[in-house]
Design a protein around this nucleic acid. Structure first.
Lengths: 190, 190
DNA sequence: CGGGGAGGTTAGCAGCCGTTTACCTAGTCG
DNA sequence: CGACTAGGTAAACGGCTGCTAACCTCCCCG
């Protein structure tokens, strides 16, 4: 038996694509329906509301990001290895799911208040994983600096949806190298 | 006589702030009016439509970015100097006008078709300035790679609105160093 | 002094869009 | 076989929102 993408998931991926391209408010219920072959209000058999779709989309991506990142760090046997694993993880994610990454970056503001709190909390924890990993390999970064650097690296890696000129592997290599280099400036400058 | 921020400009900066925070469709005409002390439809004395505000906002920022970048490159006396000047220019811009940078990154899709074409053209020219400058200092990047690297650096620098934990000067120094380091990975690795 | 334009105001319309409702099928299972 | 459920449809409603209309007031200038 093949893995069946359970309709809900079909809808979520289609909606993610549309949200990424046109923005949350720029996409109508009917558009989402049309994208999966059903039309309009049929979506309410699967989701309580349009907001609920965005909510589920963003909480699930935030959880995956956090869990995967944490796992990679835990599996590493040295700080340098941990940082490289973390970078690789985020790069893979951004390259494999550009729509989700885009939605997560741009549409936090469109969440319901409770959903936003949940997502924010997960994101904070993910950032914290990065901050700790960075500080272990770049000891001269204090905590606020490491946090700012982490956000900068996210921006660097998440830029991938805007430049699809390279093939996947080249892009992954480029982004990983740039991200790593951006985090180790003091090491080589005399 | 002091420089008077001509109402139109007041409106544009207020609107930029709101668009950055809530997204184009998430902001009502009345919200923008309220932000400058007048209410609602009075805006139509200054702009033809809400779309026109976004259009003017984005074309003007794209022009400023391009002109300033080109000027900095022209004034430089060596490729390395040009790259550093370009980075410094973009960093300053992002730090001084975080709202505009955010709107430009996120709300391209909400433009009218002709406006979008104009803005896209300007952005392409700006990217081209970066690509040429990068390729002069990093000769082993081919053109598609340099373009992808440029977008990655934009993402890195434009991340600044999401992390205001550092003061302006520290942030500028951090972002400049990271950007420069991310673009010169091959130089130091043996 | 008197009239015209610049820049406000409020009231109201028109259209879009998320959501609800009522109804219709297929399967499934006791 | 009969009934319940999962999943779909089309129609209608209601609120929000961009924009227009009609009107009002300064202020400037001949």
């Amino acid at each position: 038996m093949a893995e069946k993408p359970s309709r809900r998931d079909q809808i979520l991926t289609a909606a993610a694509e549309l949200f990424a391209r046109h923005g949350f408010h720029g996409v109508g219920i009917d558009d989402i329906g049309a994208a999966v072959g059903i039309s309009g209000p049929a979506l309410y058999r699967h989701f309580r509301s349009k907001d609920a779709m965005l909510g589920e989309m963003l909480t699930s991506i935030s959880e995956r990001l956090l869990d995967g990142g944490q796992a990679r760090v835990d599996a590493a046997s040295s700080p340098d290895e941990a940082l490289q694993a973390l970078i690789g993880w985020h790069v893979d994610f951004a390259l494999d799911d550009p729509a989700l990454i885009t939605v997560q970056m741009r549409n936090l503001a469109n969440l319901t208040d409770p959903d936003r709190r949940r997502v924010r909390a997960l994101q904070r924890r993910y950032v914290e994983v990065w901050v700790e990993t960075i500080r272990r390999t770049v000891p001269d970064f204090d905590e606020p600096t490491a946090r700012a650097a982490a956000h900068a690296v996210f921006g660097l890696i998440n830029s991938t949806p805007h430049s699809a000129h390279l093939d996947r592997d080249q892009m992954a290599a480029l982004l990983s190298r740039m991200a790593l280099a951006s985090l180790t400036p003091a090491v080589v400058t005399s």
